[in-house]
């Protein structure tokens, strides 16, 4: 085990090269719906128990199923209304279980990125080959069912190994060259993109995907009331938007259909979306587009700046 994962260097949030997003935008805004499949009776993993009760875990399984049966369309209609294309953090097995959802997202040109095969199959305990196979399986599923060259990764249930980012980038290169496997959502250290050190030396970035704004963290872990969550989204936006005039920032709302689409919560979410998209210097976009734009325009300048600031 290591003291530090070694993915990035210390890089203070002051005097960095300024980022300007397309059309003079000062903030890049993306919404990342997690569309997940949890198994009712998954195999045991020695490091994490999937459900708190012995099989069948009715309460946990059924509310997540509600997200696919009922919640999905509600969030999708809302994102349509505010001109937002979702960047889906996808349990790849959902392509097999619920292709109707995949089709609806495809019709809207939403992005699919990998969130593993199932959200009840953890990386913990996998050897390098097994993790590589799991990552490749998910990327092949996305390609087969959507034609998309998967660019991003959020490890299933945020379960990682020391090699997770390396393996994802390498499988991406093997399948798609530089057009796949080039960004990660697994790191929460910054409000701007960060170049990531990989053993392959691939041009690869971490894109901010905020756990603080994640609806499941807010509702299930911090247990906040819906309108408090809505206010936090607006407050988060206000500060990042103001700072973005000087630095160029990113705001992400990671969501789950079984949380944010509930009838008692969707109003607070809609108010925040209306507020954010009502600002002129916001680039409403996807994870892949942010990462691609950054790699093309700012990645090299960032590397040079980071290097110059290492003491």
């Amino acid at each position: 085990m290591k003291e530090d994962p070694g993915y990035y260097d210390y890089w203070p949030y002051e005097n960095r090269p300024k980022i300007e997003w397309p059309n003079g935008a000062q903030l890049a805004f993306w919404v990342a719906p997690n569309i997940e499949y949890y198994e009712l009776d998954p195999p045991a993993n020695p490091y994490r128990t999937p459900w708190p009760q012995p099989h069948p875990a009715v309460s946990g399984y059924s509310i997540r199923d509600w997200g696919n049966r009922v919640g999905h369309i509600r969030q999708m209609e809302l994102l349509d209304k505010y001109g937002i294309r979702g960047s889906i953090s996808l349990s790849a097995a959902l392509c097999d279980h619920h292709p109707e959802i995949i089709d609806m997202c495809e019709e809207r040109n939403w992005e699919f990125f990998s969130h593993g095969v199932y959200n009840t199959r953890y990386t913990y305990g996998m050897n390098e080959q097994q993790e590589r196979d799991m990552i490749k399986d998910a990327m092949e599923s996305i390609l087969k069912h959507t034609g998309q060259k998967c660019a991003g990764y959020l490890a299933p249930a945020l379960s990682h190994s020391e090699l997770t980012l390396d393996l994802f980038a390498e499988v991406g290169t093997e399948m798609f060259g530089a057009e796949g496997g080039f960004y990660s959502c697994d790191l929460f250290h910054d409000d701007q993109p960060t170049p990531i050190h990989l053993r392959s030396g691939k041009r690869f970035v971490s894109i901010p995907y905020s756990l603080e704004m994640n609806d499941t963290i807010a509702y299930l872990v911090q247990k906040v009331p819906p309108r408090q969550y809505g206010k936090a989204l607006k407050d988060n936006f206000d500060r990042l938007y103001a700072e973005g005039a000087e630095s160029g920032t990113i705001m992400c709302i990671p969501t789950h259909n079984y949380q944010v689409s509930c009838a008692h919560r969707i109003k607070a979410y809609e108010e925040a979306l209306e507020y954010i998209t009502g600002h002129s210097k916001v680039w409403v976009t996807t994870g892949r587009e942010i990462a691609s734009y950054y790699l093309e325009h700012y990645y090299d300048a960032a590397l040079a700046d980071i290097s110059a600031k290492q003491i």
Partner: peptide, 27 residues
């Protein structure tokens, strides 16, 4: 980390609909 059996990467219910027979998948 101890090794997981390769069976951990087998997905016997990975097909259309639910991963059990109690009810039909339906939006």
């Amino acid at each position: 980390m101890s090794k997981l059996d390769n069976k951990y990467l087998h997905y016997p219910h990975r097909s259309y609909g639910m991963d059990h027979n109690r009810y039909e998948w339906s939006m």
